[in-house]
């Protein structure tokens, strides 16, 4: 014990001296989803501007919001999903970095410039966007996959081989669209149908879990309600996997980068925002996480396999069914949570 004391005390001292977030100049602290930031992108930015970047991960919008709201966090940039952007604005957590005045502002695809959650892109720069659709192993089921019925009223072949992403908002909204309801609906008639459908359908599901790629490859799963990027990767492992866009309506999402109001490294953060609106750099973001970005002209720098992937490029016939969910008011939220709890009791 006595012999150990020296080195252990040394380690403790080391731990205490270990720098946390150094708030010195030449720093940039990004708070982003895990495994979402291309290291090449960061290296390139560091080399170009001589700024040292630290990335810290979060795993849910609510965690990120709670942490920043509490204060004392030390981050500069955060990457909330579209439906959370109005919340960050309303809570006074993010600032206007003057994006429309930035040199690369013109590179934002016109389609993503005047979005409902951030009109005129005053607060956020697009990072990546995608959809929540139906992933199916067509060697097991060869019927129509462009419908949520695959999940909510599954054909015989798929029973017991279905996975649903454990995301309350996405699952609830897909089910609401399936029954013709609106985003954040509080219509009891629709919600009653939604609840009955979910409760019945759940008996035919195998799991509500993350991580589908291996399971499609190993034939443990034959269908899933999931994100398009994972469907893309699953197809690389199992050529029979296809991604369907439910015609009843499917969920679209976009994550965007925002500047925190209490950021310490505002200038570096602005440099970064402008940097990622450069098509070549935006393509780096997509190449890593396999989702589309919102920057026009980035296509030509994209990896070959992404340029034509039906998971990334939404076919025209289905484009109209995609909807961005809103940030639901507390009344709708309470109803959703009640149904969700009952579903998993």
């Amino acid at each position: 014990m006595t012999k150990l004391r020296g080195p252990l005390a040394g380690l403790t001292a080391l731990a205490l001296a270990f720098p946390g977030a150094a708030l010195a100049e030449g720093q940039l602290n990004i708070f982003n989803w895990g495994n979402y930031t291309n290291p090449e992108l960061i290296e390139k930015f560091e080399a170009e501007y001589g700024v040292e970047v630290s990335i810290t991960d979060y795993d849910s919008n609510d965690t990120a919001l709670a942490k920043v709201k509490a204060g004392g966090h030390g981050y500069d940039l955060v990457v909330p999903s579209h439906s959370y952007v109005p919340i960050w604005v309303k809570e006074g957590l993010i600032a206007k970095p003057g994006i429309p005045e930035m040199a690369n502002y013109g590179n934002i695809d016109p389609r993503w410039r005047d979005v409902a959650w951030d009109p005129g892109r005053e607060y956020t720069v697009p990072w990546q966007w995608g959809s929540v659709g139906v992933v199916v192993d067509t060697s097991v089921y060869s019927g129509d996959i462009n419908t949520s019925a695959v999940i909510f009223d599954p054909p015989e072949e798929l029973v017991g081989k279905i996975n649903v992403a454990p995301e309350m908002q996405d699952v609830m909204h897909t089910a609401i669209y399936y029954h013709g309801g609106e985003s954040c609906t509080t219509d009891k008639a629709v919600l009653r149908k939604v609840r009955d459908t979910l409760v019945e359908a759940k008996k035919k599901w195998l799991s509500m879990d993350y991580g589908i790629i291996e399971k499609f490859a190993g034939k443990d799963l034959a269908a899933s309600l999931y994100w398009n990027g994972a469907a893309f990767r699953a197809r690389e492992k199992n050529a029979d996997v296809r991604y369907g866009y439910p015609k009843e309506g499917f969920v679209l999402w976009m994550d965007s980068v925002a500047l925190l109001k209490d950021a310490q490294n505002v200038e570096n953060a602005k440099l970064f925002l402008n940097f990622i609106m450069e098509p070549e750099n935006a393509a780096l973001i997509s190449a890593f996480a396999r989702y589309a970005n919102g920057i026009a002209g980035s296509e030509e720098f994209m990896p070959e396999d992404m340029k034509t992937a039906p998971e990334v490029i939404i076919p025209d016939e289905f484009a109209a069914s995609g909807r961005f969910t809103e940030s639901c008011p507390p009344e709708a939220q309470a109803l959703f949570t009640a149904i969700w709890t009952e579903l998993q009791k």
């Binding site: 609510d62 995301e167 309350m168 908002q169 939220q333 309470a334 949570t337 969700w340 709890t341």
Partner: peptide, 13 residues
């Protein structure tokens, strides 16, 4: 554990 997590997370209660 999951129920409590739900309330602090997606459930916002």
């Amino acid at each position: 554990g999951n129920l409590i997590e739900l309330q602090f997370g997606q459930g916002r209660n």
